[in-house]
Amino acid sequence: MQKTSDVAQLAAITKRMRRTAIEMITEAGSGHPGGSLSAAEIVTTLFFDVLRHDPENPQWPDRDRFILSKGHCCPILYAVMAECGYCPKDQLMTLRKLGSIYQGHPDVRFLPALEASTGSLGLGLSLGLGMSLAAKMNGGKARSYVVLGDGEIQEGQIWEAAMAAAFLRVDNLVAIVDYNQIQLDGFVKDIMSLEPLAEKWRGFGWHVIEAYGHDIAALQSAFGEASSEKGRPTCIIAHTIKGKGVSFMENNPKFHGSAPTREECAKALQELA
């Protein structure tokens, strides 16, 4: 794979990844487009610029770890991993079908290049914390990046992990909250508000950075700042738009968990041309 820090190149890759994710979900007939689109810049920027990883050597012990704790948004992750060369592009359209390596939620049994099987919300930050602790014990450079859904952090275990990571001074752990404001039943502020969110993470002892999650340069800067932060973990609150990039999906709770029709897909692909 060709890594790049060039914002225009990363933006072009991100747009392709959005298209692929939409096509995959349409072909599957079910899935979660809204949160896949809101996390597109985050996942692309990590895999193509930030992560120390090597698709030729997926088991490299000192690699950085990426965990999609909001596992339902795996179409964007599969698209990006395939683009990196971890897994075949020509099977992406088998998402959610019998025997597919691209399971409905990330499953290491089918796709060993994944760092974790996720899907049940609230578990990923603890896993990333364990991986970061192992890296510290090994004296290695590996860092763990965990993408959390905003609705997901209503789960209590997130805050158990947040408390532990700060107490244990795990500075090679980065949580990215995809703050797209929408969860399955509606708007986060109406279901179970997270505010004041930055103050919560700061109160738990984390270094907090807020960024617009569709601004690649801002994300690069946030990841850079996180890397130089010593003695405490970093939470990047990425303010995002659910369904970003497709006008009729943006801020529309309907597209949290339903696939577009073929007509909607065609329209979406036109918008993402």
């Binding site: 012990p61 603890s126 896993l127 364990g130 970061s132 192992a134 158990e160 532990a164």
Partner: peptide, 17 residues
């Protein structure tokens, strides 16, 4: 925080411990 402990353990195991 037992839930957290089990999942941290799983993370450590995934990283070779």
């Amino acid at each position: 925080a037992e839930s957290n402990m089990i999942a941290i353990g799983a993370g450590l195991a995934s990283a070779g411990k």
